[in-house]
């Protein structure tokens, strides 16, 4: 695959096991590619200093945030600042700023273990942005959050995306709707779709209209297109996957155990195991 990231939000969609988390870890530099290269600002990351500089300018919120629960929020952020080479004189200012951005200013003295799931996720965001990175990678950031917490989380990430690259891996269409911008669909380790949210919705709309027309012609009036943007996105995504599977099956005939070609509608929407 080749993927260029630009400032703004990029949402990565894909089935479970498509390689979303692996791609996120490679973007952050936690996992190094066996093959291929990572280029940042026109410079290939090869030397240790390049990787360190990349780490220092990248924020990372893993899918499973294993946080030191006995630690206080402000200490957690101070430690993240140290790891990310924030100048000691700036640490307190950065900690305050990230707490403010994530609405955790009043929670700074609490231990991470005392926070709710949503707050803990926001603390994760706070540590990911405490050093003002230009690349922010969020892997399944809203899994496990209730609708209110999710909405709040979306607001925070939208604010952060104003002046940096925010790369969000998700399997929730609600996240795609929340971050209108670029959508990348990953299937079996390859980028099978790279367009805007609107284009994906248009594709779904077309598919659904065609389906509604076919249904009407078979059953008569009564089962027309309902105009739901959420269902449009879903239909667009499923259509992309189905097309990708068809291509993959044509290139590599399906064998038992292969992921390509399985029924996209059955796996989409299920949280990662």
């Amino acid at each position: 695959m080749t993927l260029d990231l630009e400032p703004g939000t990029t949402v990565l969609l894909g089935r479970n096991g498509a390689g979303k988390s692996t791609l996120c870890r490679m973007l952050t530099g936690i996992e190094r590619p066996d093959d291929g290269k990572l280029v940042r600002n026109g410079r290939e990351l090869t030397r240790a200093e390049d990787w360190r500089a990349h780490h220092a300018d990248t924020g990372w919120l893993p899918q499973h945030l294993a946080a030191p629960l006995s630690m206080r929020v402000e200490h957690y952020l101070r430690y993240a600042s140290w790891l990310k080479r924030v100048t000691p004189t700036d640490v307190e200012m950065r900690v305050d700023e990230s707490l403010r951005r994530t609405d955790l200013a009043d929670q700074r003295a609490r231990r991470l273990g005392q926070l709710s799931g949503g707050m803990l996720r926001r603390a994760g965001i706070a540590q990911a942005v405490v050093h003002e990175p230009r690349l922010l990678v969020l892997d399944e950031p809203t899994v496990g959050l209730d609708p209110e917490q999710r909405a709040r989380f979306h607001d925070i990430v939208r604010t952060l995306a104003a002046d940096r690259i925010v790369f969000i891996s998700t399997h929730l269409l609600e996240d795609v709707e929340a971050f209108p911008g670029r959508v990348v669909v990953l299937n079996n380790g390859t980028v099978c779709y790279d367009a805007t949210t609107e284009e994906l919705a248009d594709r779904g709309r077309r598919v659904r209209r065609e389906g509604a027309d076919a249904s009407r012609s078979e059953q008569g009036a009564g089962s027309g297109y309902d105009g739901s943007p959420h269902l449009d996105l879903r239909a667009g995504f499923l259509d992309v996957l189905a097309a990708s599977d068809r291509r993959l099956n044509a290139t590599h005939p399906r064998q038992e155990g292969d992921r390509p070609g399985e029924d996209s509608s059955r796996t989409f929407g299920q949280p990662d195991a």
Partner: peptide, 21 residues
């Protein structure tokens, strides 16, 4: 304890010299 509570993954993504970390 520190490996289990996520410190190791934070260290992996550190921008600091690995020796310091």
């Amino acid at each position: 304890t520190t490996a289990r509570n996520g410190m190791d993954s934070m260290r992996q993504a550190a921008g600091r010299n690995a020796l310091q970390v």
